[in-house]
Amino acid sequence: MPTTPLRPRALFAMGRSHRDALFPPEAVRRLSLSCEIDPELLVEDFAQVPGLAGLDDVELLITSWGCPPLDAAVLARMPRLKAVVHAAGSVKHHVTQACWDRGLLVSTAAAANAVPVAEYTVAAVLFANKRVLEIAGHYREHHAVEDWTLRFPGFGNHRRTVGLVGASLVGRKVLELLRPFDFELLLADPLLDHATARALGARLVELDELLAGCDVVSLHAPALPETHHLLDARRLALLPDGATLVNTARGSLVDQHALTAEVSSGRIHAVLDVTEPEVLPATSPLYTLPNVLLTPHIAGSLGGELRRITISAIEEVERYCAGSEFAHPVTRAALAVSA
């Protein structure tokens, strides 16, 4: 009589609040159909659990925000570890060189997390061209309606030019969602060719040309040494008067002092979900400027949107346990040029 193959042992490694939000009982029950996992066993810091039993037979880590770095010392405690399924976006915080040296398989839910970021971006683009923020502020203050065309000549979303910096997962999703609108779409990405850009629905241009020719510019590049302050004072000055900069990527892509000077002058507008630093000083004018919409890094998956990440991670676990390849693998080479 044939024996039933042993299911691989899995372990949660993430912040407790994230585990509770991402993997409620029904999600754990589905995971348990493919792997052995103890819903009560959670690692937030390997250094704080030196006596944690049974790590030597862990084959699969299910990680998310708050996962401790998987360095050589940690991996030494898990000699059978073969794969990491990340129920979040970037794996850069915890997947170290030691993971690649071990030859671990790595998966991410970045594609699932890209959806709400793209949706936020599209809303920002549409509201920016319609001057919703400024009109709402004026209406709230004066309780009066005026001829908005006189105040904002040419405003609206018909035949406006929107530029995306970076063809990341989010950037590509934004292009997809913007396709039905009457926009001219420009794209700047040094790793892309013209044919690929056309297939994505955009025209590939150099960054300076994009900045100078767009009504709205949205950032979707990764935070790398070569993208630090990619938009400096010179490049911000290229934006046309009245243009809007949208940043849902990383605050380090923009010179914060130069941006603050530009928006403080009233020359351009900004929608900022990320800043440098992540929480600005209380004295920052970006909190109160009427031409700036500042949100506290909420574009990514929150609330009910987390379910999309949960499903993505569970499906990757199921693929691994069935002996199939990941649908959303992460490679060392791709990670070097991505978020």
Rank of each mutant, 00 (worst) to 15 (best):
V95N: 00
Q97H: 10
Q97L: 08
A98S: 09
C99K: 10
C99H: 14
W100Y: 10
W100R: 01
W100Q: 03
R102K: 15
R102F: 08
G103E: 03
G103R: 07
G103K: 04
G103M: 06
G103S: 05
L104G: 02
L104E: 05
L105T: 12
V106E: 12
V106T: 08
S107Y: 02
T108H: 01
T108Y: 10
T108D: 04
A109V: 00
A109S: 15
A109R: 08
A109I: 00
A109T: 06
A109G: 11
A110N: 00
A112P: 13
A112Y: 09
A114F: 04
A114L: 06
A114M: 05
P116W: 10
V117Q: 06
V117E: 05
A118I: 03
A118S: 15
E119R: 07
Y120N: 04
V122Y: 01
V122G: 03
A123R: 10
A123P: 08
A124E: 01
V125C: 10
V125M: 04
L126A: 04
L126D: 09
L126P: 14
L126N: 06
F127T: 11
F127Q: 13
F127C: 11
F127H: 12
F127N: 13
F127R: 14
A128R: 03
A128P: 05
A128H: 05
A128F: 06
N129C: 15
R131F: 02
R131N: 01
R131S: 03
R131T: 03
V132D: 03
E134V: 04
I135Y: 01
I135L: 04
A136C: 05
A136H: 00
A136R: 02
A136N: 03
A136E: 00
G137K: 12
H138Y: 09
Y139G: 04
Y139F: 10
R140V: 00
A144M: 03
A144H: 10
V145R: 14
E146D: 08
E146G: 12
D147M: 08
